[in-house]
Amino acid sequence: MIFNKKDTVIELKSLTTGYRKRGALYPLVGPVNISAQSGEFIAIIGRNGIGKSTLLKTIAGLLKPLEGDVIIKRKKITEYRRNELAVKTAYVSTEQIRADSMKVGELVELGRYPYTSWTGRLSETDQEKIFFAMEKTGILDLRDRFINELSDGERQKAMIARVIAQDTDILIMDEPVAFLDIKNKYEIMHLLRSLSDEQNKTIIFSGHDLTLIMEQCDRIWLIADRTIYDGAPEDLVLNGLMNKLFDDSSFKFSERDATFSTRREYLADIKINGEGIYKFWTIKALNRGGFRAVSHETTDSVTVDKDADGFYWIYKSKIAESPKLRTIHALLQWIRRVPEND
């Protein structure tokens, strides 16, 4: 494996981000000092309204820092001219495009805007980059379709194709996989990941899909308490920082399987007899139903096993024993019905 040379491409220096309204400053995050290297794939997570978009817009040069500096490739962002920055940083958000008669091809071609002359004529290189971007995102066939006729997933791929065609070292993306189905979320995340791996691009994006982010990103910037907690996903988990995604204690992050669950009193303990994946999902289902799965002997138990017809579940309480239940759904219904049988 060849390691790409790591350069610091983005530096946030005593940066405070936020917004201005009628001359007053409303800081959201900062001051922070943090930097990103080339080829890094960084996810920004945090609650709604915590300042993710504002931070991303500030890094993309769309908002002025309230204090401090954003330094892109050793030069302050405020010292760049708009068209100079456009070949360094590309930006995409969930903002909808309202151009009615724009075709997918035309959208992606606009990614070459910073490179063309005032006539907008595309060179050979431009056309190659456009082709590459559309091929990479798998939208070559959609080229002549109008963007307002696309599905959400297709439209988002076209938007991403545009920033790939822009061919900048830095990609800033505000919720690139919001509103997409699971298949599209995974496809786009893989695509972005491969761009940072293969082309050494620095990608900073925000999102809410924790499982997906933890799986794909080397680095998370978690925004909470008006600062950025920086680290590998695993570091943040082990330091208990994930719980900062909630402001009260009724939810708890499970260090075991990267999920959040409500903290609550369990109705009862149930012993689970069984093995493997069937045991794992049975525990999940019982947890959701309000029962704690334990391994010691209790009055109630659930046994998962297999016979000639396939897997079955048997629920046993001190007063009754269920027949062989063939689905978890049936198991849960049986357990809930038991008190009525008393």
Partner: peptide, 23 residues
Amino acid sequence: IFSLKMLNAILLGETYAETLGVN
């Protein structure tokens, strides 16, 4: 005629146009 290229990018909205380098 001199506004044509810029108008193409402005179709994306001012935010995107700005990030493409439009004045």
